[in-house]
């Protein structure tokens, strides 16, 4: 892909969820591993919003954390602007770090309660040595105004703000190192809808103004529909489908994507009779063999219980499903 800013290739992450050593020895249990992310590949193009959707535990946050370097991948690699992120150290890594940022879900936990807002926003500026003294203070004031707050708010503490305002502060902080790429892990899940609308609009405006690229993570399909150019659907750590933002909603390919769409409450009150959603997400420590979705899938075939479906390119995206592959979908 010519203009990919971020390339994720075969990304995999295990977690050791074994009991403590002594218990294992006594109960004669082997080590246990949980596969949170398995063999995930996608590209994020410069200037676009790439969204990851999936239900709880599908591996969204784990992928986000690996991309920003909070977690080491167990396998696979991540390229940022062509440079590998793993194995890069020291000054080169510092240069890379300045170019990406992350916005978190919980605006009550993502700001240090003991720091003034100005300090919080200035931390990246200081860390990367971008400005200091009066210049830095001016920059902080400017950023606060960019996100719709006032320069004087720099002197306040986070607890003096509402959830939506705090998320604005978190965005101002993320912008302060002038990044090109921002990973947003459920940035509006903790907010009320009327405030969510403000934040989503703000994020859109900032993207246009600064030419930002977003990795936008959410469990809310309607929000993703509104924000994303392209969407990846995750199920139990694997990408089920990658599709163009509009197309996923008009013609979902993977059976899981269809089920998710059917589950979204119908605000239009169109009287649509939806298919009953079957079953629940299996335990990730002990996933079903073959296609992990097979116990819930209406199109399940014998092969699905044995083999893991591989991604097959379809149009501008891909789907990992035998039914799609065999044209049964």
């Amino acid at each position: 892909m010519a203009d990919a800013l971020v390339q994720v290739q075969g990304l995999t992450r295990y977690f050791d969820v074994s009991k403590p050593w002594l218990n294992r020895v006594i109960e004669r249990e082997p080590k246990a591993y949980l596969t949170a992310v398995a063999d995930v590949s996608f590209d994020i193009r410069r200037g676009e919003t790439f969204a990851l959707v999936g239900e709880s535990g599908s591996g969204k946050s784990t992928i986000a954390k690996m991309i920003v370097g909070l977690l080491e991948p167990s396998d696979g690699r991540i390229l940022f602007d062509g440079q590998p992120m793993t194995g890069t150290d020291g000054a080169a890594m510092r240069k890379l770090r300045r170019r990406f940022q992350m916005i978190f879900q919980d605006p009550f936990a993502s700001l240090n309660p003991r720091w003034r807002v100005g300090e919080i926003i200035a931390e990246p500026i200081r860390t990367f040595g971008l400005a200091s003294g009066a210049e830095m203070r001016r920059e902080v004031g400017r950023l606060l105004e960019v996100v719709g707050l006032g320069a004087r708010d720099a002197a306040k503490f986070p607890h003096e703000f509402s959830g939506g305002q705090r998320q604005r502060i978190a965005i101002a902080r993320a912008l302060s190192s002038r990044p090109e790429f921002i990973v947003c892990d459920e940035p509006t899940s903790a907010l009320d809808v009327s405030v969510q609308a403000q934040i989503l609009n703000l994020m859109r405006d900032l993207q246009d103004e600064f030419g930002l690229t977003y990795l936008f993570i959410s469990h809310d399909l309607s929000v993703v529909r509104h924000m994303a150019n392209r969407i990846g659907v995750l199920y139990l750590g694997r990408l089920a489908e990658v599709a163009d933002g509009k197309r996923l909603f008009t013609e979902p390919r993977h059976p899981y994507s269809r089920m998710l769409l059917d589950a979204v409450p119908d605000l239009e009150m169109s009287g649509r009779r939806r298919k009953r959603v079957e079953g629940e997400i299996p335990n990730p420590i002990d996933p079903p063999p073959g296609c992990a979705f097979h116990p819930r899938c209406p199109l399940v075939a014998d092969r699905c219980r044995r083999e893991i479906p591989q991604p097959v390119a379809r149009g501008d995206g891909m789907a990992a499903c035998f039914a799609v592959e065999e044209g049964r979908g």
Partner: peptide, 21 residues
């Protein structure tokens, strides 16, 4: 907590994170 992760994302030194955050 996420504020500590936010500091780690920008590569803040662990000792600084411990003492100041």
């Amino acid at each position: 907590k996420e504020y500590v992760q936010a500091a780690r994302v920008i590569g803040a030194h662990p000792v600084k994170i411990l003492v100041r955050h």
